[in-house]
Every structure is written in C-alpha cells, then in structure tokens.
Amino acid sequence: MENHRFENRNAQAITMSADIYFPQGFDPARTYPAVVVTHPGGGVKEQTAGLYARHLADSGVIAVAFDASYQGESGGMPRQLENPAIRTEDVSAVIDYLTTLPYVDAQRIGAMGICAGGGYTVNAAINDPRIRAVATVSAVNIGQMFRQGWDSTQAVSVAQALLKMGADSRTQHAGQDEAAALPLAPLSAEDAPNAELREAWEYYRTARCAHPRSPSLMTVRSLNQLVTYDAYQFADLFLTQPLLMVAGSDAGSKWMSEDLMQRAATEDKQLHIVAGANHMSLYDVPVYVEQAVSSLTAFFQRTL
C-alpha cells in the first residue's frame, strides 16, 4: 500500500489523499484494471472503504480508497463539508489521476462505493463513461434519505425544515472559516432511533472502527445541497454500464438499492441480497463482507 496526494482540479485546487492498494506480485511494468472505492458520508479511507479496497486488490486489481474533499487527509475548508456535487466530482478526479499512472489500464477502470459513497459513485458513473463498471454496498441516495427518511416514511415538512436549517447556518457563518456541524451517526447509543442505526454509533464512535479523522459529522450548510440532490438523476438515460448492488436483507436502506435497480438504463444489472445482514454489518462483519467481496470480485473480473 502507498499513500498518494494529488490535485483535484474540480474542487478549488484541493489536494486529495488516497491509499492505493496493489495486487500480490505487482509489476509496475504491467498494466492492471483499477477500482475506485468511495467511503460513506462522514467516513474516511481507513475504514470500510480501505477494507474493501484491500480485498479487491487481493483479487488482482489496483484499488484506490480516498478521502473526500474537505474530509480526512484531503484539503479544503470548511472541514466536513458534504457537498454532493463535489463528492461526485471527487470520484472523477481520482480517475483523472489514475489515467496518469503507467501501470493503470485507463480502459479498465471501475468504481464502487459504500453507503452515501455508493450513491455518489452511481452519480459519477452517470456523468463519466470512463467508469466501465459500477458497484455499491449498502447504497444510500443521500438526497432521498434526507427527503424521505431512513425507511422512506418521512413527511416532506421535515425536509423543508432541513432546508431552512441549512440556509440559516449559511447566514450565521458567512465569512467564517468554521461552520456548525451535525452528526451523520448518532453521538451516543441512546440517540439512535433503532437498533440498526445504533450500529452506526458503534461503528464510528467506539473501538469497532472509530478513527481520529472520522468525526462522522457534516456541516449544517450542506443540507441545502443534500436535500435537493438525487444521486440517481438521469440513471434511466445514462447509467448504461454494468451495475452490481449489494444490500443486506435486513437493511433499512435496501429500498434505495431497489429503486436504482428499477431506474437504471443498463440491462446488465444485479441486486445481490446478503441474507441476515443489515446496513452497517456489511461495513466490517467478516461473514457478510466475505459474501459481498465474493460477488464484487466476480463482477469486476467479468466487466473490467
């Protein structure tokens, strides 16, 4: 594994930080397919994205886990900005960089993402045909989540209130380097609305997978972009690449994978349901990750 840093030309000359994982027996004189792995909202490359990248590299591809702009070791102010347009462009910025590496076959680049990173990856694939195959794990279309809630039962009035909250924060912090933040994972076990999201607290805020650069927060001002964002917009027209979605049978977020399966233009699409898994268990629970990796490995070997 090597850490690389490079300029993101799509986001105010922000320097990106990415970990590149190489297959066993890597030969820099050869060319390899590559897969870009995008982390969840509030996460960093050292968590589930890095775990999946390591597994993918073991299958023979070059895999890249990176920190989003404004997050982790990547640059940008204010910290923890979760702007979906920039998050989507980050994926293409990593691909820009990969095309400059002599050992990457630019015609064989795929992308995958976890949670909100899955939605951003889909959006990037809609925009960027250099992505030859796209996969997700526990996909979340983050705009749908803020509009409709975790289980798609939220009233639109809640989303309207979130838009106002974001706008008020922009006014309050205009001209300042720091901005108010809100949690993307519960701050305590008691804050969790259900057992599944209690696991989000456990993953991000306990020894299970807490990381000092992953506060699992986002700026309140981000709500203005997120509430009105649809990661799957134009999927019915432009998502023509092969598509694999992995979701847990018990995941509250499963409906967002099912939605894209209906909307995607591609005829080469598969929804792989992991029995007994919920949204969070696909992040790091070995028995479920192994099943997801098996499906992902076969998919990318076939499509790249």
Rank of each mutant, 00 (worst) to 15 (best):
A180W: 03
S188N: 02
Q225A: 15
N194T: 00
S188T: 13
Y203K: 01
A210Q: 09
D177N: 13
W201G: 05
H173A: 13
P186I: 00
D168I: 14
A179D: 11
A181Y: 04
S214I: 09
P212T: 14
A189Y: 07
A192L: 06
S222T: 08
E199P: 08
Q225V: 08
W201K: 07
A200R: 09
D191I: 07
A192D: 02
T171H: 04
A189T: 01
A180I: 01
T228I: 12
L217C: 03
Q225F: 14
R208Y: 05
T171N: 02
A179V: 15
L182Q: 14
P193I: 05
T171A: 10
R205T: 07
A189L: 11
D177T: 12
A181W: 02
Y203W: 10
A180K: 06
L226D: 13
Q225L: 12
D177H: 06
P186D: 07
G175I: 04
N194E: 09
S222N: 03
L187H: 08
R205N: 15
A189W: 11
R213K: 11
S169F: 07
T219F: 02
L217H: 10
D191T: 04
L182H: 01
A200T: 15
P193Q: 08
A167P: 02
E178P: 10
L182I: 09
V227T: 03
P183T: 04
A192N: 05
E199I: 00
S188I: 00
A167L: 10
R170C: 07
A200E: 10
S214L: 01
R170I: 13
V220I: 09
Y203E: 01
T219H: 03
M218K: 15
A210P: 09
L187E: 13
E202Q: 14
A207N: 09
H173Y: 12
S222E: 05
R208H: 07
L217R: 15
N194C: 08
H211C: 09
S222K: 04
R198V: 05
A185W: 04
A207L: 09
P186S: 05
T171M: 12
N194L: 03
Q225I: 00
S222R: 04
A167R: 09
S216T: 09
Y204T: 03
P193W: 06
P215K: 02
P215A: 06
L223T: 14
Q176N: 12
N224T: 15
A192Y: 03
P193T: 00
E178R: 12
R198A: 12
C209W: 07
H211T: 08
L187Q: 13
Q225Y: 11
E178W: 13
E196A: 11
S188M: 03
A189M: 10
A181T: 15
R208N: 08
G175C: 05
